[in-house]
Nucleic acid binder design. Structure first.
Lengths: 334, 334
DNA sequence: TCGGATGATGTAATCGATTACACAAGCGAC
DNA sequence: GTCGCTTGTGTAATCGATTACATCATCCGA
């Protein structure tokens, strides 16, 4: 690998000039600039990032942590993150936390050690090491959140209006004549679940159906969807519609219906959340709340870059538009 | 951030001693070691990675490139990669190439610039900059491949036996009495598609059905699966079974059948490839060739670590076991 | 003609670790 | 008492960039 010294020697200038040619070309005369660039090309020189980072304290890397990278919802968000990051000259360090606090901490330490300029966490959990950093630096802390909104964390985030989105999904079901609606939420310690639940309750109240809500708590996985749907269907007065807080749980619910010999949507309607690429491939195609996943990824990067450039003056929330994709899995109440 | 100097001062030793305590404790006396460790803890010291990397020429990072991170097949492999990498003390840099050569090149340059110690590429395309490196360094080049096997590239890789796996899927269909079988392959420039195709042809020949193969070329996407399946079904003598080289294309095929009012498996059987988590959630649950995705990820990391430690002496192939998961989407020929 | 501004370039300190080499102390053998 | 060996620690060079400051030439206006 050629170093800046090699280039300097080759072009007959000092290393300072080479560095300037590369990062502030306007401060160098036309003649030297072309000479240096010729040497750069000839030697195939590229700056050593470790040296650069040691000197500048910047790494041009963004760390993204996610509870489960193999979940298409998250991997789609990450796609947006990767796109926006690399467009801005950053690369992406990936951290799969598997929901384990120890691993979250480990990634938080990477940030403190300056292995990355900033951290994006998808999901709702802010490990102590990060919370500490946010407490110390306030809105200057290079930490942002995607997909959720927890005001108490004090970090910027990009997300949809979960409360309204959930309310609209419920309105859709009430509009179809459903009264007894089952809801399979995510873990209740997540603000995302709580927001959606608020929306659910509100809609139910508007229709005088709050007493007819049947609640179950899942963990966003297919299995929990199946399990909780089975529990709901075993109720004395089973719901005629089930609203799941993720597409995967909705898939589980559909499987549960099939196993019980129930038809969707004739017997029971199902509505999912996320509208991942598979929602419309299910049978019946799944009605689902559509989130702009890649855009969430792009926006959350924009938020982080604002902080890194010093332009941010306080935690900002970006609320992106959602949309209910109505498909065949939801129909009139039986 | 505390530096090694701070720790040295605090503990009353030289920086050399601090460094040794951290990386070669046995060369330091018990007494100093505990004293230094106390200072390390008190100051919350962690080595600056840029400085370390500048000195040692190692980054402890692995770059993983993938054509599409939002594809669950790849994201599952990446999960395995992340797990094995972080267990070995490496972090993962993610590169989504979107199949664009320019981006592939960009990531290859990151390796040359030593932004990562090694590169894992999923998919079959080795960009010129990497090919050059492999040509120059031979099996010492820190480049490995996951999921495919292209002997001509000269790089190690972890994958299943695609030829046999495809042959077994076809055997399954022939065993069910199918004669006229449609096959939707991936792009034919990929060795993976060619290997599977070889297996397909072999099985067909064994059953004297080579002439009854109906071929179509997809690109692994849902859309192409739908499109190609429609084309196959429009044939004068349409196939009674369709074998798709990815689950996503199989989903597209199922959708095409549904649209045409055909029943799967009564009218047409469908077999997929990959056995992603959604295969069994489809209706009908999809018969699919199961690949050990996370394990491919783990093994490919192991291959890379072998190269990095100097233990590797030539390109190695790790063939992992596959299995045909038979479900309801494949049944007796009508 | 001279002072000062402007522009182009070079000198060298610096970032924070690792590690080859030097050195001192302690100890046993002769 | 000295030699040689081992063990523990320190000194300082080094990795490859960036950048504050110094220097020098040129040019312009008074």
């Amino acid at each position: 690998m050629a170093t800046i010294q090699d280039v300097a020697r080759d072009a007959g200038v000092s290393t300072a000039t080479v560095s300037r040619v590369l990062s502030a070309p306007e401060r160098v005369s036309e003649a030297t600039r072309t000479r240096v660039m010729a040497s750069v090309d000839r030697l195939g020189y590229a700056p050593n990032v470790a040296a650069k980072s040691l000197r500048t304290l910047r790494t041009e890397k963004i760390l993204v942590t996610v509870p489960d990278i193999s979940n298409p919802f998250f991997s789609q968000v990450i796609r947006g993150v990767e796109e926006a990051a690399s467009a801005a000259g950053y690369s992406v360090l990936l951290g799969d936390t598997r929901g384990e606090e120890a691993r979250e901490e480990q990634f938080a330490r990477m940030l403190r050690r300056r292995e990355a300029d900033g951290l994006i966490f998808l999901g709702h959990h802010l490990p102590p090491a990060l919370a500490e950093m946010v407490a110390a630096l306030g809105p200057k802390a290079p930490v942002v959140n995607g997909c959720e909104y927890s005001p108490e964390l004090g970090v910027s985030s990009a997300h949809i209006d979960n409360e309204r989105a959930a309310a609209e999904a419920m309105e859709h079901l009430y509009g179809l004549g459903h009264r007894r609606v089952g809801v399979i939420t995510g873990p209740l310690d997540s603000p995302l679940s709580r927001d959606r639940l608020t929306g659910v309750r509100e809609a139910a109240r508007r229709h005088g159906c709050e007493g007819a809500l049947v609640m179950a708590t899942g963990d966003f996985s297919i299995d929990s969807g199946r399990r909780e749907a089975e529990a709901l269907l075993a109720h004395a007065a089973p719901p005629t519609a089930i609203f799941c807080f993720s597409d995967e749980m909705a898939m589980g619910a559909l499987a549960a219906l099939r196993r019980k010999g129930l038809n969707c949507p004739l017997d029971v309607s199902v509505v999912g959340f996320d509208d991942t690429r598979y929602a419309e491939m299910l049978d019946p195609p799944l009605t689902s709340v559509s989130q702009p996943m890649e855009d969430i990824g792009r926006q959350v990067v924009a938020l982080l870059l604002d902080i890194l450039s010093g332009a941010a003056h306080g935690p900002r929330q970006i609320t992106l538009p959602h949309r209910l994709s109505v498909r065949e899995s939801s129909g009139p109440a039986s």
